[in-house]
Simulated scan of single mutants.
Amino acid sequence: MSRYRGPRLRISRRLGDLPGLTRKTSKKAAPAGEHSQQSRKPSEYSLRLEEKQKLKFNYGVNERQLSKYIKIAKKVPGSTGLILLQILEMRLDNTIFRLGLSPTIPAARQLVNHGHVIVNKKIVSICSYQCKPGDIIQIKNKYSSQDLVKNYLNFPTLASIPNHLEVDTKILQGKVNGIIDREWVALQMNELLVVEYYSRK
């Protein structure tokens, strides 16, 4: 399944606030769907599916990537749901977004794909690169790269930077100090339902 490239606002109306997908907000108060109504109480399956879709659309991963991350999370000791969130949060594209160097995760992905991002003094063009504590992330010292990110910084989207990251906006450099804690994950969701969704497949 390919990455979603359709209307983002429609997805955020249906699934709720997805900070990584878009910073736009809808003026429509009613939820998405015909006549804005739900004909019946949602089933357990639909609740689990909705939580899975939140992860998928917010972090911009496809079905194959998400199921791969679930398999990795299950092999690590601890809460599978928390480890899954930590894997997704430590992706390079999401880390750039959480540092405030891009307005959304798709914008961060574009920065990485176009070679504007340097990790530990090497250009990294793989969005799924897993950041580790001690990694130093900076924007390439090139006018086009610096100018693009400075324009993004003029319109900040996140209220605060997570406690596992630090950033110097003057030199456009960030550092990963550790692994993110659950309370700093910006997405409002129940990750246990996602684990249940994949365990029942």
Rank of each mutant, 00 (worst) to 15 (best):
M1Y: 04
P7H: 01
P7K: 05
R8M: 06
R10C: 07
R10V: 03
I11R: 07
L15V: 05
G16K: 13
D17M: 11
L18M: 09
L18S: 07
P19K: 07
K24F: 02
K24P: 12
A32M: 02
E34H: 00
E34Y: 04
H35E: 13
Q38D: 15
Q38R: 10
R40S: 10
R40M: 14
P42A: 11
P42C: 13
E44L: 06
E44F: 04
E44H: 02
Y45L: 02
L49H: 05
L49Y: 12
E51F: 11
L55P: 09
K56V: 02
F57E: 04
Y59L: 11
R64N: 10
Q65K: 15
L66Y: 09
L66V: 13
Y69T: 06
I70H: 10
I72F: 09
A73C: 07
K74M: 05
V76P: 03
G78N: 13
S79A: 14
L82M: 12
L82N: 14
Q86T: 00
M90V: 02
M90R: 05
M90L: 06
N94I: 13
T95S: 15
I96R: 00
I96S: 00
R98S: 11
L99P: 06
S102N: 06
I105A: 00
P106W: 08
P106K: 12
P106E: 09
A108C: 08
R109A: 06
Q110G: 02
N113Q: 14
V119C: 05
K122P: 03
V124L: 03
S128N: 07
Q130D: 06
K132N: 08
G134Q: 09
D135M: 11
I137V: 12
Q138W: 09
Q138C: 09
I139N: 00
N141G: 06
Q146Y: 00
N151W: 00
Y152C: 03
Y152E: 02
N154A: 01
F155C: 01
F155L: 09
F155G: 00
P156D: 00
V167S: 12
V167Y: 08
V167D: 03
D168R: 10
T169P: 05
L172Q: 08
L172E: 05
N177M: 11
N177E: 07
N177W: 11
I179M: 04
I180P: 14
R182C: 06
R182P: 08
W184D: 12
W184N: 11
V185T: 04
A186Y: 07
L187R: 12
N190W: 05
L193M: 15
L193C: 06
V194H: 05
V194E: 01
Y197W: 12
Y198M: 06
S199N: 11
K201T: 00
K201R: 14
K201C: 14
